[in-house]
Design a protein around this nucleic acid. Structure first.
Lengths: 220, 220, 220, 220
DNA sequence: TATGAATGAGGTTTCATTCAT
DNA sequence: AATGAATGAAACCTCATTCAT
């Protein structure tokens, strides 16, 4: 499903590779603006490419969306791993990771868009698993250090992070719109800090819930 | 745009009124399950009605979605007003309102689904304005009481509330899936409680941002 | 896959049923004229219906083609059964059946159009099996009567019959074009008559060959 | 339209000429396997060449298909001429020609695939005319010798020959599938042999019918 | 010259909306 | 008033053809 590795396994031509990057970038913006239901034609228009070019690199819309998710998750994983190796357990590290992950998505990833998602490809599956495992590690260490409340787990964090909306789209008159994700993340982090006073009534989510979540969200 | 007031302004027959209620209920479920892109045919199927009947009561899909939003907002407004009259300023009141509002949406309202929304009708506009005004009142009072952090405003609250995802849809084997909105709300409330320690970098959102938000979310 | 029995198993409205008949008829003509690659839009145009109407009755192009094949096979089967009950074994009966079958297709069924066909639905599968069994019966009886050459079997007959081309399409100036299928059938019948003098070198086809044939022909 | 004569009329380089041969061969196989709707990309893939190379030698798909037809017809013409010069009028000669012609196509030429064909190029037109004239000669002589039934003509023979289907494509497990064209040809020849007993009802086809046929068959 | 990436028209399919029954 | 069949615009996707490398 990886767009950058065609059947023949020959490396892409320089310009083609650049096109792939651009398509991913533009598509992320388009989905952020218009939701998953945005048309491929719109992605083509904004990227100045023909629709055929997009389909040459991504066999279908699902694959394009998956590739965006994979890219974001890969970068997120790198952040988590860096935090684990540099300052394991510190609140600063935890904070930095979450802010990074939000920023990766903010204004860029399509908003969480429900709808029966199709079965994820193997690449997406595996990066998901890796990212979850790393986050579990991060959460455990931060809790051991006593700075993260004990009644949340890695699944909670994923679910909450994913609910932070991306940047509001720019207004038509060209003036930029505030990116509220940062404010939101600040509040969320304060809410996650130990000890926490509001009771978290429901049982913490498990793999079952996370799987269910992935099944109902496009491209994650 | 109001579905309950036909052209002739004659009150609906009992069964017709019942149909309207049922359509709204079913549609809310359908959109929650399948996202905004769910088809009207699916709403018809689940409600056991013909598509024509739905179009008799709602001139188009947008109007149906708006009607759901209006219903939810009306109920939310009632909650806020009750809190303002019974325990103005108390953390308990603030908490109760937010939990109520989340529950109104949770598992029921369609997930926040982006896409250039059409201009809202007058009824939706006015209920939005009323609800925002009441929330501003509530936020101000709670801040005056010193229990809500000072660096957030009513717009923040609306935006954050709306990002809480609805209940995960039921699994295929019929077993229910946990509703995580309550956990999420708990964390959010702890984050909102005074004094707050994480800096909220961006400037607080204003009417401009909230309008922008409404413009990009289906049916809010 | 049967177009006339919608999911709800409720009978179609009279006009809808008539539309189904007409679509089948027109589609048969269109495919005969232009081959399997004819567009659904062309079928819609010639039948004066919208494309959506065709898709309401046939979930996709394959289903439409299958329905045509099923209809033709059903009628063919009836012919074979009649021959078996009225004049089993006679050359006249054999001849009549083959001429009927050719006429059912002639100028009407799409030409045998190669291309990896999709898996047939259960209805097509079963009518195929029935028709083949009945033909085997007919061939055997006719051979026992000594009027059909012994070195051919029912599969041969199916394959040869299917190769007879449909009527040449009408010319543009409106003058009709000769239907050569009848001439062709005459020659073929003479070739099939016992005893036969040309050696038939290859082994007679079996179920394997017939299955292979069906797999590579659209809609049969 | 001839691929072997580039604009500058300079002879092709050796490797280029070899490419042309190979493209023709592969294309014939591909069309036999997948029908006329097979893509040029598939031809490129199987021949190990780039699509650009194919388009360098054949201006478009139609030209490629025509070139195949021309090649087959040229070889057929050679057969007919040889028969005319060696054993004019004998059943053996007639038989040998027909079997040769079938074999030229069998498993190699694309199946007769209907669809409004484009106007044939001059080269195809002229080879068609030549081949038809030679066949008329052959048919007349064989009829004069009293071994070919009198009520068929050269057009009949062309039409019947062209309806013999090509070899069934190979199965997926690699085992070859029987080529039934030989059996079929045998039956056809017996049917064509004088005197013939089945009445051939329709009038024999004329140039008009054959032209019409050519107009509706890809690449003949 | 050969390659395969890019293009975009056209085909299949879906679904909001209209309208005959 | 209710139904669901019909419509057609718009989405996804393919592939003949062009063209930069």
């Amino acid at each position: 499903m990886s767009p950058t590795t065609p059947p023949g396994d020959r490396p892409l031509r320089a310009d083609a590779r650049q096109n792939v990057e651009q398509i991913l970038q533009v598509a992320q913006d388009v989905f952020a603006d218009l939701g998953y239901q945005a048309s491929i034609a719109e992605v083509a228009r904004r990227s100045g490419l023909g629709m055929g070019t997009i389909y040459r690199h991504f066999p279908n819309k699902t694959a394009l969306v998956e590739s965006i998710a994979i890219k974001v998750m890969r970068e997120s994983l790198a952040q988590v791993q860096r935090a684990l190796s540099e300052e394991p357990g510190s609140w600063t590290a935890f904070t930095r990771v979450l802010r990074h992950m939000v920023r990766l998505r903010s204004g860029q990833l399509f908003p969480v868009s429900r709808g029966r998602a199709t079965e994820p490809g193997p690449e997406l599956s595996s990066i998901r698993t890796e990212l979850l495992a790393a986050l579990e590690d991060l959460v455990a260490r931060t809790q051991q250090a006593g700075v993260l409340r004990d009644d949340v787990n890695a699944f909670d964090v994923v679910l909450m992070l994913n609910s932070i909306p991306p940047r509001l789209t720019d207004t038509e008159d060209g003036s930029p719109t505030a990116d509220l994700a940062d404010r939101y993340t600040g509040v969320l982090l304060d809410g996650l800090r130990a000890p926490g006073s509001e009771a978290l009534a429901q049982p913490a989510p498990g793999r079952r819930e996370i799987d269910q979540f992935f099944r109902t969200v496009h491209g994650l």
